[in-house]
Amino acid sequence: MSLGKSRVSLLILLSLAITSCQSEDKPPLPRYVSDYRGYAGADGKAVRKDARYYIEFRSRYALSYGHTYVIFGRLDKSGRPATQEVAGLAPATNDPAPYVLGHFVPVPAETGASDGDLEEEYRSASWRVLLTEAEYRKTVAFIRDLKARSRVWQASVYNCNAFVAEIARSMGYKTPAIWLRPQQFITKLREMNGG
């Protein structure tokens, strides 16, 4: 690649990273619940009796522009989460230096829960999808495989939105651009898929 092309590529990557940080989050958005094939209702109760599992696409506020991740598990008899596991992509440290560096080059990543993921006061948007046991097993198998192969984070190429988008696409959903702020990403994901 010539020096001119590499400079243009770097300029494009930097502008994508910068523009993704320019808008502001809205106040926390309502929780939405859908089943795997369509809308189920805002009360969070399963319409289908066989939908005993869930995956919830979530965003949360943070000191930076936020974070996107999923929570998944089994529902109890009243339709509330009985179990929950978190999957998301973030730099593998609480040190801000690798996070800043990750806006320019890939940095080591972790794929589990990060600070604030399970705290309700930080939730900015969410979309819960109800699943049958077979749908759940297929989705969880994909998530486990994705976690095993996701080793790096880079803000403009493979960020938390890109990680969650892979999960959503594996379920047959359309996904928005990965350069949106997390709250916008989750809201657009739900709207694009009729939730």
Score class of each variant (00 low, 15 high):
54 Y>R: 03
111 T>P: 05
78 S>W: 12
63 L>N: 08
111 T>S: 02
90 A>W: 15
100 V>R: 02
80 R>H: 13
57 F>P: 02
61 Y>R: 07
65 Y>K: 00
78 S>H: 13
100 V>H: 04
55 I>N: 03
112 G>P: 03
48 R>C: 03
60 R>K: 12
68 T>C: 13
73 G>S: 00
49 K>V: 09
96 P>E: 05
52 R>P: 01
84 Q>I: 05
71 I>D: 09
56 E>P: 00
63 L>K: 09
108 P>L: 07
85 E>W: 12
48 R>Q: 11
90 A>F: 15
90 A>N: 13
102 G>P: 09
83 T>I: 05
75 L>E: 05
78 S>D: 15
83 T>D: 11
92 A>Q: 10
57 F>V: 06
100 V>F: 15
78 S>R: 13
68 T>V: 08
103 H>K: 04
62 A>T: 15
60 R>I: 14
67 H>E: 10
77 K>G: 14
89 L>H: 11
105 V>Y: 15
91 P>T: 06
69 Y>K: 03
66 G>F: 11
60 R>D: 01
108 P>H: 09
74 R>F: 00
83 T>P: 04
75 L>R: 00
74 R>C: 02
101 L>I: 15
60 R>T: 11
71 I>A: 13
108 P>D: 10
51 A>N: 09
73 G>A: 04
85 E>F: 12
72 F>L: 07
112 G>M: 03
53 Y>L: 01
86 V>A: 03
104 F>G: 05
62 A>H: 11
110 E>T: 12
60 R>Y: 04
90 A>H: 15
62 A>V: 02
95 D>M: 04
109 A>P: 05
91 P>K: 05
57 F>Y: 15
85 E>Q: 12
59 S>I: 06
99 Y>S: 10
71 I>R: 08
73 G>T: 04
74 R>T: 06
88 G>L: 02
70 V>G: 01
88 G>K: 09
79 G>Y: 12
67 H>A: 02
69 Y>H: 14
81 P>D: 10
72 F>A: 00
102 G>T: 09
84 Q>N: 09
105 V>G: 06
47 V>K: 12
47 V>D: 11
88 G>H: 04
107 V>W: 12
104 F>V: 14
69 Y>Q: 05
47 V>L: 08
74 R>S: 06
60 R>S: 07
70 V>D: 00
50 D>S: 12
83 T>Y: 10
90 A>P: 08
69 Y>A: 04
108 P>K: 08
54 Y>T: 02
67 H>D: 06
87 A>G: 03
96 P>S: 06
93 T>K: 05
91 P>D: 09
75 L>F: 04
85 E>C: 01
48 R>L: 15
55 I>Q: 01
110 E>A: 11
111 T>C: 06
68 T>M: 03
56 E>S: 13
48 R>P: 00
85 E>K: 14
90 A>T: 14
89 L>M: 08
49 K>D: 14
60 R>F: 04
100 V>I: 15
62 A>D: 15
88 G>S: 12
55 I>D: 02
55 I>G: 01
